[in-house]
Amino acid sequence: MNIPEFLDLLKAQLSKLSNDDVAAFAISICNRLLPYYLEFHEHSTWGNPNTLLEAVLI
């Protein structure tokens, strides 16, 4: 599967979910990426991890 095929499949599956379920999916992705973003910020001193933290906590 290539990237365009993956994106089509993802869009098709997400379109079946309620807005609340799509939001929960997005928050889940953010939670999984947060440790990597914190490490990136620590090494690069770029970005603002508090913005992501606040968004995940809403």
Rank of each mutant, 00 (worst) to 15 (best):
F40H: 06
F25T: 05
L7H: 11
L38Y: 01
E42I: 03
L33V: 10
F6G: 01
A23N: 10
L7T: 07
I27V: 15
Q13E: 14
F25L: 10
E39W: 09
N2E: 15
G47N: 01
I29H: 07
L7F: 12
A12P: 00
H41I: 03
E39L: 14
E42D: 13
E54K: 05
L10T: 06
E54W: 05
S28L: 10
G47M: 00
L38W: 02
N31Y: 05
S15T: 07
S44Q: 11
S28H: 12
S15H: 08
S18C: 10
I27F: 03
H43F: 13
Y37R: 02
N50K: 04
D20Y: 08
T51Q: 04
H43A: 13
I3Y: 07
F40V: 01
A24I: 14
S44H: 10
T45R: 07
R32C: 04
N19F: 00
A12N: 15
H43S: 08
W46C: 06
E54D: 15
D8N: 09
N19D: 15
L38K: 09
S15D: 11
H41R: 04
S28Y: 09
T45N: 14
E54A: 13
M1R: 11
I27L: 14
I29Y: 09
E54F: 05
T51L: 10
L53C: 08
P35G: 09
S15N: 10
P35F: 06
T45S: 12
R32M: 08
H43M: 12
L53V: 06
L34E: 09
N19K: 12
H41A: 06
K16Q: 12
L57K: 14
E5M: 07
N19V: 12
P49E: 14
N50E: 11
L17Y: 02
N2H: 06
F6C: 05
T51Y: 05
T45E: 15
P49F: 04
H43D: 14
